[in-house]
Write a protein that binds this DNA or RNA. Structure first.
Length: 293
DNA sequence: CAGGTC
DNA sequence: TCTGG
């Protein structure tokens, strides 16, 4: 699909404590890292229901942004969206301050991964499917699956710079093209994706879940096929920006065991220990344990 | 060999 | 369990 009435532009703005690459490649996220091209990272995002090609790159403490989008979308709208996706309003220093007091381990972790933030979903349905696909799967494999779903089932948009981007299909499209989904390398998760999509299409609105309190949203997500505690918390953290979520995978299990000697009820442990910073604590613990020799 | 859900 | 690297 070609886009008419399009405008291109660029701007830059100052960012707080932030590391774009670290944030985008942190591993456990709602979406694959953005496409790296000509020194920028780019993605197709819908803003005000209009397709928008966003390219970003970081130069020290500012972010350079190029965009191609409908004339109705303002640079302010784009900036707001970028701030949301990289969680730039979150007060990282306060989080650091809270957990580095009298804690040499956390001090080192925080120092090493300074500027790491949540990489939030721009599409909640994509985030749910991504999270289901990530279960019992390697990072490189689920990343490829998601990119394949976008290319095989998603809609293609061609921008003025002749850039071609695919957008993650909506639930209806996925249900209409179930057969194609089989060739996206999701394996046995195929039936979970189809069943969950059916529920999201017919019975459960994502917006409704978004309005719920954390606990209720968690229990509701658990009802979806292929969604267990880890996936539910990933969806809540990366998709719905619920900072109290604490997704526990084998890496977090190892980290908690390693640092605190705790080996059961790890989610509850993390949530009571870190409270409203549980999600961020998880982000840093994950980096710590994955890179630990 | 990696890796949550049923 | 299942499946690509």
């Amino acid at each position: 699909m070609e886009i008419n009435k399009i405008k291109c532009g660029k701007f830059s703005f100052n960012v707080p404590n932030f590391d774009l690459k670290l944030t985008m490649f942190s591993g456990q996220t709602s979406q694959p890292p953005w496409k790296h091209k000509n020194d920028y990272y780019q993605e197709l995002i819908f803003i005000e229901d209009k397709p928008c090609l966003i390219k970003v790159r970081q130069k020290n403490n500012h972010l350079e942004v190029k965009y191609e989008t409908d004339t109705k979308v303002s640079p302010q709208d784009i900036k707001k969206t970028i701030k949301y996706i990289f969680d730039l309003e979150f007060n990282l220093d306060k989080f650091y301050f809270n957990f580095t007091q009298n804690d040499s381990i956390f001090s080192r972790i925080v120092e090493k991964y300074n500027g790491l933030r949540l990489f939030l979903a721009h599409n909640k349905y994509e985030c749910i499917i991504s999270s289901i696909t990530s279960a019992n799967n390697s990072i490189s494999k689920w990343t490829r699956s998601i990119l394949r779903i976008k290319e095989k089932l998603g809609r293609k948009y061609v921008f003025p710079s002749s850039e071609e981007m695919y957008y993650f299909p909506d639930p209806e499209t996925v249900l209409e093209n179930k057969d194609k989904l089989k060739y996206c390398g999701v394996g046995y998760r195929y039936k979970y994706i189809v069943e969950t999509t059916k529920i999201l299409y017919e019975n459960l609105s994502i917006d409704e879940v978004n309005k719920m309190e954390y606990d209720e949203a968690f229990e509701t997500l658990l009802e979806l096929p292929g969604v267990g505690p880890k996936v539910a918390d990933c969806i809540l953290l990366y998709g719905f920006r619920r900072y109290e979520a604490f997704p526990v995978d084998i890496w977090i299990t190892r980290a908690i065991k390693d640092l605190f000697g705790v080996s059961k009820d790890i989610r509850e442990f993390g949530q009571s220990k870190f409270g409203k910073y549980a999600g961020y604590a998880q982000l840093y613990l994950y980096q710590y344990i994955r890179h630990k020799k």
